[in-house]
Amino acid sequence: MTPGSFEYHRPQSVDEAVALLGQYGDEGKVLAGGHSLVPMMKLRLAAPSHLIDINGIDDLKGIAEDGGEIVIGAGTTQAEVLASDLLAESCPILPEAAALIADPQVRNCGTVGGNCANGDPGNDYPAIMIALGASYTLRSADGERQVVAADFYEGVYATAIEDNELMIAVRIPTHADGAGMSYRKIKRKVGDYAIAAAAVTLSMDGGKCASATVALTNVADTAVLSAAAADALVGSAVDDKAIDAAAEKAMADSDPAEDLRGPVEYRRAMAGEMTRRAIREALARAGGS
């Protein structure tokens, strides 16, 4: 349980970090909070020769509103999300979900960017970012690009990010007034990844669901966007029947593996149950009942 040897770099600016990433390619790894990467290094599942620590880069920190979008610097810690008044006001699902991630020690170091860039299906933020319609700002020496969260995840630890790219920020469209959102997660204990979890946003118009998104955590190789579950809600009064239909769709879209959290049947059922609970909570917050 000790990592192999590596060289340690601590760039002070994004440009410097991006240059190092360009230089070392797949030999290098970004070190943010270290709470996913270091455990993998200790198990020697990851053995980067160069660690590029981005904790000294102030430009990667902070939460701000910018023309209809909330911008969260990739280096912002999960604890900072939990404490943000801005987010509590405009995107409460993020601080609420932060409280369900790990424990205070982890959240004090673990970052939003690390959580989103890691590519572990157990991470909580990817499904939420997908449900929120967020996108990620990625920068390399060649320039900057924007990737929609829903397109970012390709498989277990496989994402759209290139070896030479740094995630700079997460951009989240501010949601129309009246949209309700909720994240419901079932886990075995504090510090555990989800048995299953569901992120839901929905808005109501004249007693009918005007728009909805449903995304799931840890029930497939990547976070899952369940368009079918959302479709089951849109246009309905979000009554029990519609909620059950959405839950059924979410279950159908999930493809969990059996592990110590439970057999496939259970984890799929929990994807449905968390979807139900998240819909009910989002509905209440959207002014429905």
Binding site: I186, R188, I195, G262, Y266, R267, A269
Partner: peptide
């Protein structure tokens, strides 16, 4: 009595 075992009984 993990959640999934209890759930199996419920189910």
């Amino acid at each position: 009595h993990t959640q999934w075992r209890v759930w199996q009984t419920l189910n």
